[in-house]
Design a protein around this nucleic acid. Sequence first.
DNA 1: CTGTTAGCGCTTTCAG
DNA 2: CTGAAAGCGCTAACAG
Lengths: 330, 330
Amino acid sequence: MAITIKDVAKKANVSIATVSRIVNNQSGYSSGTKEKVLKAIKELGYSPNALARGLVGQPTRTIGVLLPNVSSLFAGKLLEGIEDEAKENGYSVVVCNTGTQGLRAMGYLDMLNEKRVEGIIYGSGDMTKDQGDKLSALNIPVVMVATKPAYGHFPYVKVNDKKAAFDATRCLLDHGHTRIAFIGGQLEDPIAGRPRYEGFIQAMNERDLPIDESLIKFGDFSFNSGKEMMTEFVEEGASFTALFATSDEMAVGVLHAAYEKGIRVPDDLSVIGYDNTLASEMAIPPLTTVAQPLYEMGQKAFQRVIKTGATQIEMKHHMVERETVKSRRT
Amino acid sequence: MAITIKDVAKKANVSIATVSRIVNNQSGYSSGTKEKVLKAIKELGYSPNALARGLVGQPTRTIGVLLPNVSSLFAGKLLEGIEDEAKENGYSVVVCNTGTQGLRAMGYLDMLNEKRVEGIIYGSGDMTKDQGDKLSALNIPVVMVATKPAYGHFPYVKVNDKKAAFDATRCLLDHGHTRIAFIGGQLEDPIAGRPRYEGFIQAMNERDLPIDESLIKFGDFSFNSGKEMMTEFVEEGASFTALFATSDEMAVGVLHAAYEKGIRVPDDLSVIGYDNTLASEMAIPPLTTVAQPLYEMGQKAFQRVIKTGATQIEMKHHMVERETVKSRRT
DNA sequence: CTGTTAGCGCTTTCAG
DNA sequence: CTGAAAGCGCTAACAG
């Protein structure tokens, strides 16, 4: 059996209440007793039982994080921000890998609830209605990060996807490109799918450029999906001088397909990605991309789930120009 | 206030003991009462308080995972394996990002202990003596994954680093290379540093090839470190036809430096990495590497920390030949 | 300044 | 088959 507050009390010849006060830095004891108790604690190697504390209504100092794919660079960065900020504030975070479909989420919700987490961060991925309802019912703070609610009305922290996509497209446009291919997430995805598509369209429209449907494809943000779509483009004989992929992974997939097909980037084709994960930095050539401040978003999400505040936080995106975008020779 | 076992008992007109039995699938009640209680539970939306359960000596079904860098592809894969297996077994995992130096580890250990986790997985990174001592003192199961104890004697699951490095070098040798550069972790690192170096040396020796010290450098496994070392090699005018980097990230850094310097891979230089993370797959050209089964290692580590068993599990590595290694024209 | 005591929500004897 | 009651380790009144 682990050693408890009673053992300390006995050893220091005081009551457990006194020990509790000292452990919790409250007032109401002489410096003499404090010393005695601290000594006993050290000698016994006592550490308070967080379970018991939680039971008497004390904050559990634990939050839960739901992520669709912990092993991705994207989620990793988010998690890192959350975790660092949590540590800073004395909290621990339990991670839940909900899987690509977010299928396992419901089970996690019960578990998190039973463990009495103080808050839940829902990172990316689509929230189903079931999940939203359950989350609301749980009656504990929820904040969404890198996504926003399709159901319910949870606070969220994210960039403006449409504007970010608009700027990415503009970057290509400003380099003189007019035939621009677009690779995005599904249009049915109201968070990361449609808005980015709309940003693209808006930028094209603003320049009075026609939208060529044969230059538009939708995938699932993954490397493979990007690679496949690009391969299709070239096999279909599509002609374009630039391409915007709405995730770095897809963009790197594009780079891959281009490499295989002997298309030189950026000489034959300019490519721009989205996210600014390590993947864009490691790409050859280094990928120009529009950055989401993932780490900071994680930090903000943590803060927001603990202290209540603004119900939506819009983070600023920014362009990171590396080597995959080149001006079109005219 | 959340609803408790008492509420259920009252609503179902039974004692809390009965409710407890039913919730825990024990025996000792009629099917009639069971139905009544289940109904009450559903209507009230009751869910047991894990804190209270833990307090009465029940397993907390929680484990802690210490990782030096959660946002890396490497740690991500490990974590994914751990988490999936945990979920499968009804456990939750709290992640601790110990930072590159593992400096924050001590604080985490206290926290994990206070939360009464049932076990701790120490993932990668060097364990300091302080940490080892504390971990032992905690008196809860610890298993190390992708690393092994330099202090203490914890069970671990990992590949045989020396053999893996030996095989990687052999791959280069078998392709006819004789002047092979080596980029590794620090020799002082007894886990991932020295053994891989030794594997390299052994393979060279076996072929009676001389070891050229000017072709050997040590870094920190990161992309930047790999890139820098490769840049140094070419600036020093070192001459070699193949290179072995003991992490995919470093290998990709090498690819980068080569790209910048106009060195073609694999035509001018063959490169082999280590880990088989997504980075190797996404590299251009796709990186040949020696794979560690990171995901499975995570799973095994979880199993081992829960059920006691073998004190060391050696996982098998294997070669993944992609496009960065080419036979030397003779 | 310090101790006593009543729970927190749950599991588990021990009686019936 | 079911209930009463003790107690897990801790905090928070309430007394002194």
